[in-house]
Amino acid sequence: MRFRPSRDIRVERLADMTLVFHRLSGETHILSPEAEAILHAVPMGGADGPAVVETLSVDFDIVSADSPGPDETILARLQELADLGILQRCP
């Protein structure tokens, strides 16, 4: 499964928060720092879960609170962002 940022979003920083406005739904999403990092690690051309993990690994030491581990957690976060329309699933 590959993901890319939706073309219908606008990302704005407000103080220490990252807000994403989704044009079609009219919804505004407040991203946690981890969601923000994951979103920024997804290139416009699209990437799959392992590629996003690799990108994040370059800039971050990743610590996961869950037992499945960082890879599964990041993949789950990608799905969560896609379900909200912030990311699009792409071929």
Partner: peptide, 10 residues
């Protein structure tokens, strides 16, 4: 340059 990315509980 490296920072810590803490992934929260699913």
């Amino acid at each position: 340059r490296r920072r810590v990315l803490k992934l929260g509980a699913l």
